[in-house]
Amino acid sequence: MAYTQPHPRLSVLSTSSQSSVEHLSPTASSTRFSLPSAPSIQATLNKAAPHRPNIYDRNLNKTRGTEVSASAFAFLFSEVVQYTQKRVNGINDLERRLNTLGYRIGTRVLELMVWRAESSSKTPKRETRFLPALMSIHTQVWKAVFGKAADAIEKSVENADEYMIIDNDPPIERYISVPRDMSQLSCSSFTAGIVEAVLDGLGFPARVTAHNTPTSQFPSRTTILIKLEKSVLDREELMKQ
């Protein structure tokens, strides 16, 4: 990834990915992992929060039902879009970057959701067929990420490899008014990235894009278009028998 790395103190995650040793955990105790090259991160973290419990050590189920301020998220996402917009040429590039950012979230969403749903089950399973996987994205992923299910799933009439998830009022776009000269831009490319990561993680490689499909009743209606790779369709065909 060609992102310029910010100052180490600004972002723990992005610096930690620079070296594989630090990648194990940015705050791994030095008795378990010798980290001669990473004292700066250790020192910065300790100085910033001497007594607070580490967020990485927290029980994953503790935050299951907690809610996030929609306003705080709206401001954060607005900054994300502005930050990205300053570093790209053109709308396609902007959408691709937003997609990449969403992808990083999607991988984590999938891991967390599978762990929460299946870890307590006596017979843990995973989705191997495409349609149930798509249904679980439409309801489970949307509920985990946005707090509500998506509004519809459609299958393309023209192309057998295209499916669509439709959201009538995407929460991340609720406060965004795209200027007229950028009208093709859909900030839901971020959501498309999440969907792409979840599909990839489940073994259904696909290219996912977002498109504005406004209606008079829902001016910010958005279609997430999933274009599956041929291998997925071939496998689905084999599994039918």
Binding site: A74, V81, I176
Partner: peptide
């Protein structure tokens, strides 16, 4: 809502 949270 509509102005300050709008990235544009």
């Amino acid at each position: 809502d509509a102005v300050m949270k709008n990235p544009f």
